[in-house]
Design a protein around this nucleic acid. Structure first.
Lengths: 342, 342
DNA sequence: CTGAAAGCGCTTACAG
DNA sequence: CTGAAAGCGCTTACAG
């Protein structure tokens, strides 16, 4: 490949100054048609495209955002990433992807990239409790927006689900089907989503009146394995349970494994509502009722909020809450008359 | 936030030249301990981190690769992206994510970024037939590696699955269970994966000897909808079919929808093997036998191949083939005696 | 309106 | 061994 053409080459070929080329190409200058033509000819002959690195360095912004997420193979984050990327492209930004696996060093590395101007801002999702290092690294960092989970003690702008309200709706749905002994496989105690959903769960059961009981609430990691293990314990220790609310698709999938192994059928034997709805839950038998996260909206709002910070400067710390939707399918039924799981 | 410290600030604070700071920080210089200390103090006091834009501009490389894929919400590409990102980080590269939705303009945009040095190279996956524009834009482009699908008429290095061999294994497995009337829901005719798998399918049936028949092969888009529609046609026009090989998880999922609606049970009524194995196929009832793509290996090899091109210059165009693995679960059984799907 | 020149923050060939 | 200076390829305040 021949040496890449620069703006200088264009200016020579078009017989104008680089200043003029730059201004024209950036749309801040109107030119006589003749000059215009010369520049455009030069651009296309030389196949000129501006060097984004040079442009970013001199403008002081890179038109790139960092998307920092714990995983990408996980469909939840994959869908979130999809909506973020789509919105970013629409607004003229590139997306630098950083998968942290909840490694704090990687997280901090990307926070630094805001300061050293590698990215104009960061959309950040973290899944682990902060030991303080994160909060420290975040001191005075601008253009930083949280999505999905909060960082305890911080007041960064962010976009989160209406977890409590969602959990209330899900639990109420279970109650209305006639269940009284209800359990929850919840997420890690330290996470906003888990905490708020748990709260909504308890609230709805309390509101359901006497006779209704939160049989057990398990604090699990949001993983298939944790769901599997918690379900085993649940079956063993709380066989009176007739319905379960799981805090994520992974927990549900894990629970399902245990159910399969023990011959327990969702629907006839036990009712289930799960959170997220990113797995193909319609295709299970029966289709699974879910409290759906509106990932497209969350990703888009968060990205737009971030671009707002970047282009219009910091606003008042502000949080957007995105409603969750209860998608009724067929995994919640009336409890069996004489319920005993085992 | 105060003005970001630069290398100049560090050099002043440490009372050495910027040259020395730069060289020391880049490890190409050994210094008296005293000087070393002064520099490190300055760095930490000023919280200095190098500006990657400036560094890239002057070095002529960005230590960033572009990952260009058709989708990211799709678990197949999400898993591919995960392994690519992991390998990139391990080798010290950032990942600029570009989701094309098979839009050629977006694809070309990212190809240009190799030339204008925004990225050092591109890992490229495309899902649509090329009308020639792609091939034209790719002329003389260095540091470009394909993954998963080829671009017809190009000879770029790339990493692909052993599609033909995989399809042979899958089809043979079906044959060995006793099936004679076998159908395939294949991908778009223009795609390498579909073409090679179809080939393997026919090959295995021919090898199975007389009495074995490829009842029908449908050329579908790799989507749930296409699978749904093709399955409907299949049931209607080829009710003698006793086993099906689907070319992707999406096609399988779509087919499953049709089966559900028509009351057809996988296992007892019809046998199935699908490609990909990125959906939670173990959790279906029965668990689905699949020809698994080794996405971790594909992503990692492709990324390493790309970095090789970047750091050691172009090699002979070379293709790596990654074996597919037949994961036997319970969706293939002996055909029913008197088979009639309807 | 147009252009020469400084500046963005680094790296590195070159000279001392 | 160390540093002053040029250079990477742009943008833009400033002067004409």
């Amino acid at each position: 490949m021949a040496r890449k053409a620069t703006i200088k080459d264009v200016s020579v070929a078009a017989n104008v100054s680089v200043t003029t080329v730059s201004r024209y190409l950036n749309g801040s200058m109107r030119l006589p048609p003749e000059t215009k033509r010369r520049i455009e000819d030069a651009v296309s002959t030389l196949r000129y495209t501006p060097n984004p690195l040079a442009r970013s360095l001199s403008r002081g912004r890179s038109e790139t955002i960092g998307l920092v997420i714990p995983e990408i193979a996980n469909p939840f984050f994959a869908q979130l990433a999809a909506s973020v990327e789509e919105a970013a492209v629409r607004l003229g930004y590139g997306v630098l992807l950083c998968v942290t696996l909840n490694n704090v060093d990687r997280e901090i590395d990307y926070i630094r990239r805001i300061e050293n101007k590698h990215v104009d801002g960061v959309l950040f999702s973290t899944n682990h409790p902060d030991d303080g290092r994160l909060l420290a690294a975040l001191k005075d960092v601008p253009c930083f927006v949280l999505v999905d989970e909060d960082i305890a003690g911080s007041d960064f702008p962010g976009v989160f689900a209406e977890n409590r309200e969602g959990a209330v709706a899900a639990t109420r749905h279970i109650v209305e089907a006639g269940h009284r002994k209800i359990a929850m496989l919840s997420g890690p105690k330290t996470l906003l989503s888990a905490e708020e959903r748990r709260q909504g769960f308890h609230e709805a059961i309390a509101a359901a009146g006497p006779g209704h009981e939160a049989v057990a609430v398990f604090d699990c990691a949001y993983t298939v394995e944790a769901g599997e293990a918690a379900a085993e314990q649940l079956l063993q220790r709380y066989p009176e349970t007739t319905a379960i609310f799981t805090g994520s698709d992974e927990l549900f999938l894990g629970m399902l494994k245990t159910f399969r192994r023990q011959g327990i059928r969702i629907g006839p034997d036990i009712s289930v509502v799960t959170c997220d709805d990113v797995e193909p839950l319609t295709l299970f038998e029966p289709p699974i009722t879910a409290l759906r996260q509106d990932l497209p909206k969350m990703g888009t709002s968060a990205l737009e909020m971030l671009i707002g910070e970047i282009t219009r400067g910091p606003r008042l710390p502000r949080q957007i809450r995105v409603p969750m939707e209860l998608v009724r399918r067929q995994s919640v039924r009336a409890p069996r008359r004489r319920m005993r799981l085992k």
